[in-house]
Design a protein around this nucleic acid. Structure first.
Lengths: 190, 190
DNA sequence: CGTCTATTTGAATGTACTCAAAAGCGGTGG
DNA sequence: CCACCGCTTTTGAGTACATTCAAATAGACG
């Protein structure tokens, strides 16, 4: 099995080999093709997902039918509709694949089991959400204090090389601008 | 002691009376006057803070010297510079009081002790950060998909009655608009 | 009561948007 | 293998939401 996920966990907590093995038994590998859907808005989000290769997007469709991307999840990233997953209520957000993607998934039930059997994982996910919280906090500041041009630069730092892998309209959706305007920005600079 | 904090914790985990008592011994009550500073940007954030009365703001100053408010923390809310607090490195954000405020504080050291003695608190703070993560996620969507007018409406729902307690320039800073434009918005409507 | 800061109002400006059309690119089938 | 179709990106022209600058008014606090 891909050790990427164990490396990811080892950044924050130390597992005994037996705990790591147990953890891996709770995961299910899923492969989805480019442009196919992992979570349809309105469905209950059944799993917490870790991407081992490819790239997912987490997005929300507004009342005008426009998408807003909250998160890209290339390899090494976690992705879920947290609210839907933890409350097992219909999702506000959607998740789908921007490339052929392989991921590891754990269901809400199995995650609760994991918390019970290996409480260290409460700590792991506490730190994971804490980091996500900090990341979003910085993004809110960026969105209100920086011009679209600087936010674009910041995107390239946050997701190195991702720019070449995905459509510009998705980058625009992440930045909170129109694809038309992103095109003009790119022309102005390099 | 104010039971507000125990009610807050009881929303997510159940404590034995002895655990609750132990928890309370780790807290220190702090009172700060309106307009005084709890965390100066550049200092290390020493404590995680729960507000029992009054109101704090968490903000960041950008390179143009403009403030951007990330969070209001009236009674019942938690507030800290998470990154600075958990890494004990200099803070990017500032925290100060918009009203005379009373709060309960726990240091990073004592919090680690608490995690060790009562591991349930890992769960509590995991859920707290998870909820904060979800809150910021929604705010990012709101900031890119709604007009300033609708974001203002949303602010009033998120923080009922707070509008009457604090200066408009702070609300504008939270919404990501200028005080001048907020004034015009208010004139147009009610 | 006087001073200092916050809010309001007016006028000109800018950043990013919409609408529209053309050009580019990618996948699919004949 | 190339031609076609649909979707993405580019480009142009006009527009809107929110800003800046400036001055007047209102409020808060010692």
């Amino acid at each position: 099995m891909n050790p990427l996920i164990l490396d990811n966990i080892a950044k924050h907590i130390q597992l005994e080999p037996s705990e790591a093995d147990y953890f891996l038994t709770l995961l299910k590998e899923t492969k989805i093709k480019k442009n196919s859907v992992l979570l349809r808005p309105g469905d209950v989000c059944k799993a917490l997902t870790f991407v081992t290769s490819g790239c997912l997007r987490l997005y929300k469709t507004d009342t005008d039918g426009k998408d807003h991307i909250l998160l890209f999840a290339p390899e090494g990233w976690w992705c879920t509709d947290s609210y839907s997953f933890y409350t097992q209520t219909p999702a506000e957000y959607g998740i789908d694949a921007l490339e052929d993607t392989t991921c590891l998934q754990i269901t809400a039930e199995k995650l609760e089991l994991l918390y019970k059997e290996v409480p260290k994982f409460e700590r792991f996910f506490r730190i994971l959400f804490q980091n996500g919280f900090i990341m979003y906090q910085k993004r809110i500041t960026a969105n209100t204090s920086l011009t679209a041009e600087k936010r674009y630069h910041r995107f390239k730092l946050t997701y190195p090389k991702l720019e070449q892998r995905i459509a510009q309209k998705h980058i625009a959706s992440y930045l909170g601008i129109t694809p038309v305007f992103l095109s003009r920005l790119r022309k102005r600079n390099g």
